[in-house]
Amino acid sequence: MAQEARDDLPYINKYKNKIIGAANKYGVKPSIVAGIISRETRGGRGAGFTSDGWGDNRNAFGLMQVDKRWHTPRGQWDSQEHIEQGVGILMDCYREVAQRFPNMPDKMRGALAAYNMGAQNMNPNNVDAHTTHGNYSSDVTARAQFYASNGY
């Protein structure tokens, strides 16, 4: 995970100002946003990610892979508007996790898992149980730690 984050750093850096702007708007650590973008699209260059910003069999859009089955994607795939939409969705997940599981000690990890698979599918005792590869929130958190030590 750390190696992938390290490999993605030059690509993530292209969006640094947008990431920091969106994170500040919603009160989220920029490193978390960078971690999501690294996990979702490897900074806009991941396998299965098309040049027009679509991934997941054309169901998910942009750097943050907003799922069109649940949301109407906004902005260009690498725009400030798109990143802000993704961070807004993350914060909606945070609020839902906090409401459903008020005693959960690490609500951001829960929000990250919910960003990937929905709060309604979450097991509060094992937040990654139903996430992609069973490690979404722990992977994004590890990537975020790397980005935090690299100016995010």
Rank of each mutant, 00 (worst) to 15 (best):
S79N: 06
N135G: 13
Y152A: 08
Y147T: 02
A60E: 04
A111P: 08
R74H: 01
T132V: 14
P124D: 13
I19W: 07
R58N: 15
G62Q: 01
Q76K: 15
F101T: 10
Y136P: 03
Q120Y: 15
V87S: 10
V140F: 01
D139Q: 11
I19C: 10
C93S: 11
A23S: 12
D8S: 13
R143L: 01
Y26R: 15
K18E: 12
H71G: 04
R69F: 01
M104S: 08
V140Y: 00
T131P: 00
R45D: 11
S38T: 10
Y26M: 08
P73V: 02
C93Y: 11
K14F: 06
M64C: 09
V28D: 02
E81H: 13
G75F: 06
K25V: 14
V66P: 00
S38D: 14
D106H: 13
L63R: 01
A114H: 08
R69T: 05
R45V: 13
D78A: 05
E40C: 10
L112Q: 03
A129G: 05
G53T: 06
W70A: 10
G118Q: 04
K14T: 11
I32E: 00
G55P: 06
C93P: 10
W77V: 06
G86S: 09
Y26I: 03
G35S: 04
N125W: 05
A148C: 03
A5V: 03
D128W: 03
S79L: 03
F101W: 12
N116A: 08
P124H: 09
K68I: 05
A129I: 04
Y15D: 02
A5I: 03
N121E: 02
A5T: 00
A23M: 12
I20Y: 10
F61N: 07
N17V: 11
R39C: 07
N135H: 03
A113M: 08
R69A: 03
D78W: 00
P105L: 07
L63P: 06
D56L: 02
P10G: 07
K68V: 08
I37R: 04
G118A: 02
G48S: 13
I36A: 09
S31I: 04
E4K: 11
W77P: 07
M91T: 13
V66W: 03
L63F: 11
R42Y: 14
D8P: 06
F101S: 14
Q65M: 09
Y26H: 12
Q120F: 12
K14D: 05
Y94N: 05
T131R: 00
E4W: 09
S31C: 08
E96C: 08
